[in-house]
Amino acid sequence: MPKAKLITIALALILVLALHVISTRRVSTILVSGSTSVEPLMCVWAYAYSRIKPDVRIDVYGGGSGKGILQVGSGVVELGAHSRPILDEDPPFNNVTIALANDAVLIVVNKKMPLIGVTRKALQAIFNYPPQEYPVETWIRVLLDDKPVDVKVTIERGHEGLIFMRSDLVNLTLRPYIRSEASGTAETLAAFLYGSWKAKWSGLQGMGVSGNEGMRRAVEEDDIAIGFLAKAIFNPARMRALLIMVWNGTMLIPYNGYDYDSTTGVPTDESIAKGAQGMALIKEHGRVPGGYPIARELYVSLNLDALEGRIPKYIADFLTWCLTEGQEFVELVGYVRLNEEQVSKGLELVEAHCSCGGEDM
């Protein structure tokens, strides 16, 4: 047989074998749903991981933290993403919960608004949570002639939920925006205002919008808007992050003494990590030195009962990657990397519950 023909046959056989391998390759799918705060980071991770593990497909859906916890608890998805802890009120299930990043909930206003700093008491009055008796007196920081000035104001709640802040120096009108669906971001703010995770996101009062993106659009488009969103969604060109402050008897100072960017008002990564790990938002008077008070860890949870008691290797490998190499993407999305202690804790949880000696599927 001619040599050229042998080569052609050999190449054809190689092609057939390659196609057979491709057609019989098993693709493992991981379904993720939940927090719209975790969603942008998880989408980046899903794409990056698929480049190095093409036999693992990761489908990511939003819907809010409540949806993520509900769906993983009922076995609909493998990973439920949530931006607040699992609470006693959530449907119980045999969960393993792993922190994957740190985040801050920013209180934001339209950039045209001269307000630059508020107290916890002012936020309680703005969102009427816990329910307030108006008028409320407290301190705020505003820009007057482009200079920061601390002003004592009286806060009233008016028609259609508008908020009026008045003093001899200022006369501000604010329109509060809240989340219209079960939201870890809203739950985190409510916990800070209430001082406990027993707080209810549904207790916040204002105009409802859907998701972090809905909140971003509302604040960007409404000159008198005040709302809250995840740090990764913050747009410094169109909005300002308010400083969270306390009155020390002489002047307003940052809550817990946290550090922040003087241009945008956004807390530093170190302040966010300290606040998130120390659960500053539910501790009396913060009591986490240097920690931004409305900070949180971002989580995924697994339902061990739905996974027959152990985490499959392909899921464990993905989570391990998120906790190690995948941390390089956290800051690119706008969140804050885990510290060494948080990483070690996550890896220990994965290893303790992994069926790593078994099949990939």
Rank of each mutant, 00 (worst) to 15 (best):
M1D: 12
P2I: 10
K5T: 14
I9A: 15
A10F: 14
L11E: 13
L13F: 13
L17W: 12
L17Y: 11
A18Q: 08
T24C: 01
T29F: 05
L31H: 12
G34R: 07
E39R: 15
P40A: 11
L41V: 07
W45E: 06
A46T: 07
K53L: 06
I58F: 06
V60F: 01
G62I: 05
I69G: 01
Q71S: 12
V72S: 10
G73F: 05
E78H: 12
E78I: 07
I86T: 14
I86C: 09
D88K: 13
P91F: 11
T97C: 11
L100C: 09
V105G: 09
V105M: 00
K111W: 03
K112F: 02
M113Y: 00
L115H: 00
V118N: 01
K121E: 15
Q124M: 14
I126G: 00
N128P: 02
N128M: 00
P130C: 05
V136D: 00
W139M: 15
V142N: 07
V142D: 02
L143S: 06
I155M: 10
E160Q: 13
L162D: 05
L169P: 00
L174N: 05
S180W: 03
E181K: 07
A182W: 01
S183V: 02
S183R: 04
S183W: 01
G184S: 08
E187N: 04
A190F: 07
F192H: 13
G195C: 10
K198V: 02
N212K: 00
R216Y: 13
V219Q: 01
E221D: 11
D222H: 03
D223W: 04
A230T: 08
A230L: 01
A232M: 02
F234R: 05
P236L: 04
L243T: 07
I244H: 11
L252A: 05
Y260L: 13
S262Q: 12
T263S: 15
E270K: 12
E270Y: 05
A273C: 06
K274W: 01
K274L: 15
G278H: 12
L281R: 15
I282G: 10
E284M: 09
V288G: 00
V288T: 05
G290K: 12
G291F: 07
G291S: 10
P293H: 01
E297S: 12
Y299T: 02
Y299V: 08
L304S: 07
D305G: 03
D305N: 14
E308I: 02
I311S: 04
K313I: 06
I315C: 05
I315T: 11
F318E: 01
G326M: 04
V330H: 10
V330D: 14
Y335S: 10
V336L: 11
R337L: 01
R337C: 06
N339P: 09
S344K: 15
K345Q: 14
A352K: 15
C356G: 15
E359S: 15
